[in-house]
Structure formats: structure tokens, C-alpha cells
Simulated assay, not measured.
Amino acid sequence: MATHRRGPTLPSHRLSHLPGEVAFPEQPRTAPGPTALERFNAAPAADAERALLTCCRSLRWAHRVAEHRPYPDLNALLAAADEAAYDLTPTDVAEALAGETLTLLPDGAYSAAHTALSAAHAAYESRFGHVFVICLDDVPTSEALDRVLTGIRARLTNDPEEERLLAAEELRRLARGRLTRLVRNSSTRRVH
């Protein structure tokens, strides 16, 4: 699902521009070549952290996950990412939320849907001071709009502390999906 940067309602994030798709540097080829996880494990710390920041924009999270390398398999990497996410402070969560983007509607969505989603996002940002995040990894594209609108409307009734906890959980779920895709799909992409 495509995304775009949110409007000027929140201050811009302090992290430098990070590409949405990255890969770990290729190592010299010997038969067979290293896996993406092996390249991640062997990458310089700065490269690993830069790649991790595309999964979750918390500097503390990225540093912690990179610091505990090497990981024997994807499940161990995901467990470490989860643990680091659970340990994020409110400031870390705010930092990660500041780096998130709004979800675009599927191509061909009608104008009223754009208006409804824009209004819902604006109401959410006004109430909580950050962009609405929701993990849609297991949601069919045809149901994404309904899921986002339902989620925003339901979560608008939360108190700020309850919503901070829910947003942190959605960030953790988003990071897991992004990290999985990064490790599984990085063989054809390069770190910038």
C-alpha cells in the first residue's frame, strides 16, 4: 500500500531522509551467496541501523536491534525486535510516530472516501498529536479503507495514555512486517 508524508500538522522528524527500501551490502560471492540475514548480521553497525530505521523510526530501537547481532534466524531477529519495541519509552514512541506516514487509499477510490479518510486523520492528529498508525499486513487491499476508518473512529474515543499504548503496539507490528520484508527481499536492493 502506497504512503505519503503527512501534512504540516506535526513538526518534521529529526532523522535524515531514509530510503523506504534498503538492502545490506553484498559480500564477496562464494557458492552459494550469503542470505539477506547473513548480510544484515555482517553489515557495519551504521548500515544495519539505517536499514532498521526504515522499519521503526526510533533510534533507540534500531541501535538495540543492531547491537544484538548476529541473529541465527528470522524468528530470533523478530523476537529481539519485539523485545526492543516493548522497552520503548514514551519519548521513543513519539520519535517513531513522528517518522510514520499516512496510508493512501487504493487506486480508484472514490472522492468521498478520500474526504472521509482525510477528515478522520485530521481529527485523530488533532486529538493525539501524532499520525494514526495501524498494521494492515494481513488485511486484503479491498478491506484496507474500511479497516483504517473503523480503527480511527474507534480509537478516537481512547484516552491519550490508552492510545499511546495502542499506537506503540501498532508500531511494533508494523516494524515486524517491515523487518520481515527487509530481510526476505533485500537481495535485490542496496543501502543508500
Rank of each mutant, 00 (worst) to 15 (best):
L18A: 10
L18C: 13
G20T: 10
E21F: 09
V22S: 15
V22K: 14
F24D: 11
F24L: 15
E26H: 12
Q27F: 02
P28T: 10
P28N: 10
P28R: 13
R29D: 14
R29Y: 12
R29H: 12
R29W: 12
R29P: 09
T30D: 14
A31F: 11
A31V: 11
P32L: 13
G33W: 13
G33V: 15
P34V: 07
P34A: 13
A36Q: 11
E38P: 05
E38Q: 15
E38C: 05
E38S: 11
R39L: 03
R39N: 06
R39V: 01
R39E: 07
R39D: 02
F40K: 04
F40D: 01
N41S: 03
N41W: 05
N41K: 06
A42F: 07
A42I: 04
A43D: 06
A43M: 06
P44W: 05
A46W: 01
A46D: 12
D47R: 10
A48T: 00
E49Q: 07
E49G: 01
R50E: 08
R50K: 13
L52V: 04
L52W: 07
T54M: 08
C55Y: 01
C56R: 01
R57Q: 15
R57S: 14
R57T: 06
S58Q: 04
S58P: 00
W61C: 00
W61Q: 00
A62E: 04
R64S: 07
V65F: 00
A66N: 00
A66Q: 00
A66S: 15
E67A: 13
E67D: 14
E67K: 02
H68Q: 12
H68G: 01
H68V: 00
R69W: 02
R69G: 05
P70M: 03
P70H: 09
L78N: 10
A80Y: 05
D82F: 07
E83A: 15
E83H: 13
A85K: 03
Y86N: 10
L88Q: 10
P90W: 01
P90M: 03
P90N: 04
T91M: 09
D92Q: 02
A94K: 12
L97D: 01
A98I: 01
G99W: 13
E100Y: 13
T101E: 12
L102H: 09
L102G: 10
T103M: 13
L104K: 08
L105T: 00
P106I: 05
P106R: 13
P106E: 09
P106Y: 02
P106M: 07
D107G: 15
A109P: 03
A109N: 03
Y110Q: 10
S111M: 10
A112T: 09
A112Y: 14
A113I: 04
A113N: 13
A113S: 15
A113F: 11
H114F: 08
H114Q: 10
L117D: 02
L117E: 02
A120I: 08
A122S: 14
A122F: 02
A123N: 09
Y124V: 06
S126I: 05
S126P: 00
